[in-house]
């Protein structure tokens, strides 16, 4: 497993308190999908000193507080190689996310993090990386892609392939990023939607079938697959058929979380805590665990 980076923590009496959130200002809200269920929030540190100490890696997450409603965990969608605010894309589904969707630019929220392990970037170095994403789970994959493509990092990785699907074009996240990546020579992007749609000229079909069609070589390649459970379930056999051993496949789990630091217990699966030992696990690790995710 990778080591986690240390977060800046507010301290009282010089001992850091991991439960106190940092104040963050909502700098920009962007409606991400045409059903308006996903909004992207760019959060800026309200105090400059907090920004300096916030050091994260792709795949880590934060607990965002909407005061009076509570906290919920969200993967960081921005990359540490990007300057500026932290980016989170939020699906309106529960109490905290609905409250967040109802907030306005300029308002204050709280943030704890970065939490979790993140993607094993050191392990990926010198290898090809296949990124497989589905639906609104592309958040930390955006972070990862930006990281890999950063001029300071690109040469340390081999071929980069993205396979990303959504039910229809309007539900794809980060359309500007996708368009920019499609124009690049050093990454191959395969976008797919479930059914034909007017004006759509790219892949049509479910992600597992597109993985089979694109058929990335498993040779010296790591696959990162994040998406709805059903997509993962049907894609894993395709990756296996292409020769990917479970040690070369990584996924990021979602679980209900509260503390985010391996204490409150609810994200426990087998001997692991998703918040602390994950959320990124190799398929080899997942195969040893009860199916409690």
């Amino acid at each position: 497993m990778t080591t986690r980076t240390q977060s800046p923590k507010i301290s009282v009496n010089s001992v850091p308190n991991p439960y106190l959130p940092l104040p963050m200002r909502i700098e920009r809200i962007h409606v991400e999908t045409d059903d308006e269920m996903l909004k992207t929030f760019d959060l800026a540190f309200a105090r400059e000193e907090d920004a300096a100490g916030f050091d994260f890696r792709p795949g880590q997450f934060c607990e965002i507080s909407v005061f009076g409603k509570g906290e919920a965990p969200f993967g960081i969608a921005s990359s540490p190689t990007e300057t500026g605010p932290l980016r989170f894309t939020v699906n309106k589904v529960g109490v905290v996310t609905t409250a967040l969707h109802n907030m306005n630019e300029g308002e204050l929220v709280g943030l704890r993090g970065p939490l979790g392990n993140g993607y094993p970037l050191e392990q990926f170095e010198g290898h090809n990386v296949v990124i497989v994403g589905g639906g609104f789970a592309f958040t930390t994959l955006r972070s990862l892609t930006h990281y890999l493509l950063d001029p300071g990092n690109r040469s340390r990785f081999g071929e980069i392939i993205i396979i990303y699907g959504a039910r229809r074009p309007g539900l794809l996240l980060y359309k500007e990023d996708l368009a920019a990546w499609e124009r690049r020579e050093d990454i191959s992007v395969h976008l797919t939607i479930d059914r034909e749609a007017p004006g759509w000229t790219k892949h049509v079909g479910f992600v597992p079938d597109v993985v089979e069609r694109v058929a990335p070589s498993a040779e010296s390649t790591y696959a990162v697959i994040v998406g709805p459970p059903v997509m993962i379930r049907f894609t894993l056999p395709k990756l296996r058929a292409l020769g990917f051993p479970p040690e070369q496949v990584f996924s990021s789990l979602e679980r209900r979380m509260k503390c985010g630091i391996g204490k409150c217990g609810r994200c426990n699966i087998g001997p692991y805590y998703v918040c602390k030992d994950g959320p990124v696990f190799s398929l080899a690790q997942l195969e040893s665990l009860p199916q409690e995710y």
Binding site: Y19, S65, F67, G68, K69, G70, E71, K258, C259, K263, C264, G265, R266
Partner: peptide, 8 residues
């Protein structure tokens, strides 16, 4: 047992 919930 030490499991806990956090609420506002």
């Amino acid at each position: 047992c030490y499991c806990f919930d956090i609420v506002d």
